[in-house]
Write a protein that binds this DNA or RNA. Structure first.
Lengths: 380, 380
DNA sequence: GCGTTCCGTGAATCCATAA
DNA sequence: TTTATGGATTCACGGAACG
């Protein structure tokens, strides 16, 4: 395999270079092997249309973590994510963002993705360097990893910052494309996308090739929104080349920086196999809107149903009281609207929404009618 | 009306003050009129359980920027002044967060809400001051304002940072209450809630009383998750008193700082009208961690489980015998229900209560169910 | 072949308490 | 302060295994 990969790598490196005004060739559709800061220093000023960066997050993980079933959580323990202090991380961030800003065309823009570990440092430094933040985008993960110990809220999202080179930039934003992609509604700042798994996840010898591979759908939306066909996209932390693969599919040129040989090899093979999309296959990329689901607790905290309210069922045969956290209490039992309903009836299951009733304006109605009211208020 | 409000204000100010060890009375359930930094300076160290802050983020808006002391900052639009604006904002943020940290009890925590204009500055400074970020929470607005010009993504969320006073803090997190509130699924870091509108939105003379009034549902979830009944909650930017109203409803004490007389008046009237929930509906689902402990040996000596009983685990893959002292014996090993379970699986740890099963009336049940029976018998 | 069940796993700052 | 021990704790999805 190694030979075949090297052949392909050679072919990739021989890709036609773009010639700029300054007569400096831009090494387009190639992976630059090495540290991103020194590699970026070799590139000419104002030559890049868009930068997508997935820098190390500086996770600062503690000891091992086990799931409730005892299995081991495979954490990000790579050396490239280790920094001795915030000051060191800030210095690193300032350096690569300074180079990034130099490389951007005046109307270019940059995307950086991160988590609460690092994104506040990144955002602050972006602002300090003169970038102009356009949006912060929330990637709401459809299937995040749970919080196994029950100690915090499930960390179910990552944050992307989108910023132009300066306040004056006439940046690219394909408003119509985004609206079309979102069923004719304006694309919002929160994007629901699954994490990268299944056949899309790159593996070597059965184990994941990279610990933090991003889903192509994420890059697809980023590139479709903020670049045009033929633009040059730079990714300073190329990894296994998601940026390159999506750029090729969408007819954009790309440049990647990467230090690790293993990642480079995987990325080259992957991009070689990536095919430009035709119009018909674009359709399958559109994400469905998921049906709204309402937790009973949401009605309580939104004031649609006050804690202490009496609910009845089966014409008053059963009664229960709403508690502050959205649980129900009967004489002897506590449970969810579904669980308590089932328990009281001795039934295996119960739809609490239609089982429990509440008196509202002299009328006894199923609590499901409150859910409908809530949905009306929440939609749009 | 003004007279009635003043009467109520007087009554509020006469609320019983909590007396601390240091013999300094904490002005509980009162609004402190004045700049939050100077008002906070009057309060004693380590006296507050939780802080909720909705600080101003009046930068980059082309409008005025006021320094903490109220003096005016010239809003010139060149780069140099942009930096100076950030520096002023950072200084202000550092000052009030420093006071906030001093006031927090060692196990206290803080919430700060903001948007991309200021939240990166806030997060960075929180980290620099030694706060320990626990989650960043996305308030996903169900009904955001559209982007009228179609130049960016619809800004459809705000970000909250939840941080403990230090890395070592044993902060409050009511895991079970949150899980109950979310239909028995872990509460995630993205919260879908409507913006504050309709009858909840406070108005004076037909116009909204405050430009950024937060929905009570947001504070409800924050307080239910990270405080206990009787805790003291401080809000340095009290505005129209959403924090106070929800605190009163949920049986928490509160302190607010506010400079503007108009807001104070509206807030006092509002909190006066808020109804506290009664005790019983305030009770939330408790985690097992806070339940009384039962030694496995107690089940044996009480006859719930006879010595010699065979226990199984993982569908019969593991078996062990109960011994008279409450230890378990497998073929080659002896240990506690937890220790033996861990050893047999080669796992670092194991919850024996859910791991081991016993046949009882033809059904195979975890021995935890016996513990529940035992607890029922022992209670009362 | 098809439906069911089981198992693996993902950017994670992931325990509390007594001795 | 450190160490040992009890025992609390998970959601969605893909793919393999099974019947």
């Amino acid at each position: 395999m190694a030979v075949a990969v090297k052949e392909r790598a050679k072919a990739l490196r021989a890709a036609p270079a773009k010639v700029l005004k300054a007569d400096v060739a831009l090494p387009v559709n190639q992976i630059l092997r090495g540290d991103c800061i020194s590699e970026m220093r070799k590139l000419p000023d104002a030559s890049i249309d868009m930068i997508f960066a997935d820098p190390p997050y500086n996770l600062q993980l503690g000891g091992d973590l086990a799931r409730p079933d005892g299995s081991h959580v495979d954490a990000v323990t790579n050396d490239w994510d280790k920094f001795s202090s915030f000051a060191v991380y800030d210095q690193f961030t300032r350096e690569w963002l300074t180079e990034a800003r130099r490389l951007l065309k005046p109307d270019g823009s940059i995307w950086v993705i991160g988590s609460y570990h690092n994104i506040f440092r990144v955002g602050t430094i972006l602002q300090d360097l003169g970038f102009w933040i356009l949006n912060d985008i929330i990637w709401r993960k459809a299937n995040p990893m749970p919080n196994f110990k029950g100690t915090r809220f499930t960390n179910a999202h990552e944050t992307l910052i989108w910023a132009s080179k300066s306040e004056k930039s006439k940046y690219t934003f394909n408003y119509r494309a985004m609206k079309t992609l979102n069923d004719e509604l304006q694309m919002r700042s929160d994007w629901v996308l699954p994490i990268c798994s299944g056949p899309e996840r790159l593996r070597r010898n059965g184990t994941k090739a990279h610990p933090t591979q991003k889903p192509e759908a994420l890059l697809y939306r980023v590139m479709l929104a903020t670049t045009n066909k033929g633009d040059v996209v730079l990714d300073p932390f190329f990894g296994t080349g998601t940026t390159g693969a999506v750029a090729k599919r969408l007819g954009r040129d790309w440049i990647g920086c990467e230090r690790e040989d293993d990642y480079i090899e995987v990325a080259q093979e992957r991009i070689e196999l990536a095919l430009p999309l035709d119009e018909s296959s674009l359709v399958t990329m559109q994400s469905k809107r998921s049906a709204p689901k309402v937790a009973f607790g949401a009605l309580v905290e939104s004031g649609y149903l006050a804690p202490g309210t009496r609910l009845t069922a089966k014409k008053g045969r059963f009664t229960a009281t709403v508690r502050a956290d959205g649980s129900l209490q009967s004489d002897a039992e506590i449970g969810s609207i579904h669980g308590l309903g089932a328990k009281l009836q001795g039934a295996p299951s119960c739809n609490g929404w239609t089982f429990w009733h509440v008196e509202h304006e002299g009328e006894v109605k199923p609590i499901d009618s409150l859910r409908q009211l809530y949905l009306l208020a929440v939609e749009d």
